[in-house]
Design a protein around this nucleic acid. Structure first.
Lengths: 229, 229
DNA sequence: ATGCGCTAAATTGTATACAACTATCTGCGT
DNA sequence: ACGCAGATAGTTGTATACAATTTAGCGCAT
């Protein structure tokens, strides 16, 4: 996706690794992320670990409490509501912008992603489930990248990542696959240039995801288990 | 010296101070911000200076180049266009959300801000001009805060701050005062519960600001600027 | 002068050291 | 057993030290 810097700095790599772990739910909300442990895991000093955690806090994925340390964010129900309100507010506009400039090749990319998503839906197991979560988010991110607006793209990356946290906390297990057919419907509307309909479908899609939320407790992996393979 | 929020860490204070300086145009785009200088200015070590600069880079106000240091962001014309595209995409939704929950007291706050803005417009001098810029941005930020969505509020803070940079670079001098009456029109529409009209006015307002920009590629500095620092 | 290669100075990248704070444990008194 | 003061260990906050890289300066050949 972003091929700006060929060499990602140390802290950025760590940030990305932890973010993936959070988004793919290997790290549960509320998990403590001590600077020593993080640094130890990646064989770097606390300096870089700390920088990575700070970066994640700017994205809303980690909350750092003064003199107490960093934790995987544990969004409140109100926060969750605001995250989805933001998505409802923003995604139709992104979709519209993307629809105006989308190419057949890009439509094909979306179809391909949908296929992959469907394939993963059929499989069982934690790892397939994680990949499915990621693919589902990637659909929205790909649309954002097609909008041609890097700022909105980055904002969507933040919203999708935080949504994953919310779903991890409050989502019901069967919910995540619900969106699949809706993704397909949106693509179809895009192919037919029915932009308003696509926006409408998107709004309903987001509403459906949100409607499936409910309070729920999840058990967490420890930090070490999340990264050892 | 400052007996502010004790939870605000040193790095955050420095970040806020530098951000204010950038938004109020006391620091010109492209200005080098060396960690030593920043630390020296605030009597802290490079550690905190670096953290503050990193934070600002996440907000898009500072660009850090690997092994080269941090500079006040110098948004390209394309970046400028995307910033305003993002605002057009987002602000109508924010306005709508705010309109649905706004109270008479809050409408009054907006009126008050408008008054202050008008007062500053009359004055001359750099400092009044900076205050005017700030007040103009505060109008949009206040609306965002009335939307009740903290995430959108933070996003708008970023967009308004970056807009200030863009206007500093590409704005024509007489332009910034244009928006004043439009702010008033939007408030009036809000008072009359004409939400769609308010959104329309907002879109035109943003378009007007953008239309006043001279988005020509200024790839190279003038010779004078290139050597002074 | 202009351009090139080299050395020296300055700046950033990362690790370590120390200070400040928090959390945990211990031992005592009740 | 319970609660609490104080010691102890562990964690974070900040400063400093060292390594890696860039930038600036200088001499030299063309």
């Amino acid at each position: 996706m972003t091929l700006g810097d060929p060499t990602e700095s140390g802290a950025q790599q760590i940030r990305d690794a932890i973010r993936d772990a959070i988004v793919e739910r290997r790290l549960a909300p509320g998990t403590k992320l001590s600077e020593n442990d993080v640094g130890g895991l990646f064989n770097v000093s606390r300096t870089l670990a700390r920088a990575a955690l700070q970066a994640l806090s700017y994205e809303g994925l980690v909350s750092v409490e003064k003199n107490r340390g960093a934790f995987v964010a544990y969004p409140s129900p109100e926060e969750a509501r605001q995250i989805f309100a933001a998505r409802r507010l923003v995604e139709p506009g992104i979709l519209k912008s993307a629809a105006e400039r989308i190419t057949p090749a890009q439509l094909n990319q979306l179809r391909q992603l949908l296929l992959e998503e469907g394939r993963l839906m059929g499989e069982r197991g934690q790892s397939a489930r994680r990949a499915e979560i990621k693919a589902s988010g990637d659909f929205h991110l790909m649309l954002a990248s097609f909008s041609g607006n890097l700022i909105m793209q980055r904002f969507m990356e933040e919203l999708v990542a935080r949504s994953s946290l919310v779903i991890a906390l409050y989502g019901q297990s069967s919910a995540s696959s619900c969106g699949h057919s809706e993704h397909g419907d949106i693509i179809t509307a895009l192919e037919r240039k029915e932009i308003d309909r696509a926006c409408d479908l998107m709004l309903h899609h987001i509403a459906h995801i949100e409607a499936d939320l409910d309070l729920r407790e999840r058990k967490s992996f420890g930090l070490k288990e999340a990264f050892e393979r």
